Amino acid sequence: MNLIAVEEMLFTIAFVLYIAASLSFFAFLASSKARAGQMGVYAALAGFFIHTLAMGARILESGRLPFSNQYEFANSFTWGIVLCYLAIHFYYRFTAVGAFVMPLAFLMMGYASLLPRHVRPLMPALQSRWLTVHVGTAVLSYGAFAVAAGLSLIYLISGRKEGAHKKRLLPDLDACDFLSYRIIAFGYLMLTLVIVTGAIWARSAWSRYWGWDPKETWSLITWIIYSAYLHLRFNRGWKGKPAAWFSVIGFIAVIFTFIGVNTLLPGIHSYR
């Protein structure tokens, strides 16, 4: 069995485990049984381990990090989402967050499964030392924004059902609000590095720092949305529902920047 076959097998196992984790977290919210939540965490952790092995097999097969095309980035994006979720879970023990984040992970992995998986040599524009930093920070940034959006959804849903939630399965509203803000601040820093390193890379690849390519433009739009979020939080004291909606809108912009731009507005950043 070659490494590509190994990768595909491990990818499928991880995908199934992510689905199982999502279903377990939904069962936890529906039944209030701690056992279901634990099973969700175990499935997410096992899926992440298997997923990491799958990415390792691709690295060994290609001789580079898996950042060169739409499939590889979608795969890495999923990995980043689960990494950020697990870090938050084991630090804060917010089990219910998995019900709002793990579905994003398996949906992104499902999208990756529909894309061509061929291992191809890097095109000249991608043969740069900036590839690892630029795309690696994008993976961390997008993963952080996904978890922040999940926490914001919890805030919006929990806020509507505050009186009906007797067992308080969902985290405290103030904790969701503050944690979402902290994660967005981290994601914003990473996104800033994405744009800066991308500009430096563009100068060496295309002899200009900025060209208003659709991907560049929408990355800037996303950065502006999160800049507005942080500005309003610092200077106007925005919290609660307005901040939560801003977080969700920001993540919608992230998804459009990644999937929508490649599908509807292809440009020089469309690597399939």
Rank of each mutant, 00 (worst) to 15 (best):
A149M: 15
A30R: 09
Y71I: 08
S62V: 08
A146G: 08
T78R: 01
W79A: 03
W130C: 08
A105T: 06
R129I: 11
F100V: 12
G37L: 02
W79K: 01
L65A: 09
A146S: 15
H118E: 12
R93S: 13
L60Y: 11
I13H: 12
K33Q: 14
G56H: 01
S31H: 06
Y111A: 13
P66E: 00
P103T: 07
A96F: 02
L104N: 10
V147F: 01
R93N: 14
M102Q: 12
A87V: 15
A146P: 09
R129K: 13
A27Q: 09
A138W: 09
L83P: 09
F94V: 07
A87G: 11
P124V: 11
T132K: 11
V139M: 04
F73C: 01
T132D: 15
F25Q: 01
F145M: 14
V16N: 03
A36M: 09
Q127N: 13
L17T: 03
P103I: 06
G37Q: 04
T52E: 09
S24R: 02
L83G: 15
G37Y: 00
F25M: 03
R129G: 15
Y18P: 01
V119T: 13
A54G: 04
L107T: 06
L107G: 07
A36G: 05
A20Y: 03
P124T: 12
A30Y: 05
L131R: 12
H89V: 04
L53F: 13
A30N: 11
V147I: 15
G136W: 05
H89A: 09
V41E: 15
W130G: 04
G80H: 06
L60K: 06
A144I: 09
A36W: 04
S62A: 14
S68G: 06
V16H: 01
A57T: 08
P116N: 07
V119G: 08
F106C: 07
M109C: 11
Y42D: 07
R58I: 10
T132R: 09
M102A: 11
K33W: 06
F77M: 08
L104Q: 13
M102G: 05
H51F: 00
A146E: 14
M109P: 00
S76H: 01
V82G: 03
F106P: 01
F49G: 13
F48V: 10
F49P: 03
V101E: 05
H134F: 10
L114P: 03
E61F: 05
L140C: 12
A27Y: 07
A99P: 07
G63Q: 06
R93P: 05
L53S: 03
G63K: 06
M109Q: 15
M102N: 13
V139Y: 10
Q38S: 13
A21D: 12
L107F: 14
I19F: 14
H89Y: 15
F26W: 10
Q127W: 06
H134D: 10
A43G: 09
H134Y: 07
I50E: 00
S31E: 08
A149Y: 11
H51E: 05
A34I: 04
L140W: 13
G63H: 05
H134C: 05
L60H: 10
V97F: 07
G56R: 02
S141D: 10
A144N: 14
M55N: 14
A21H: 04
L126Y: 08
A146Y: 05
L45W: 03
H118V: 10
G143E: 13
Y42S: 14
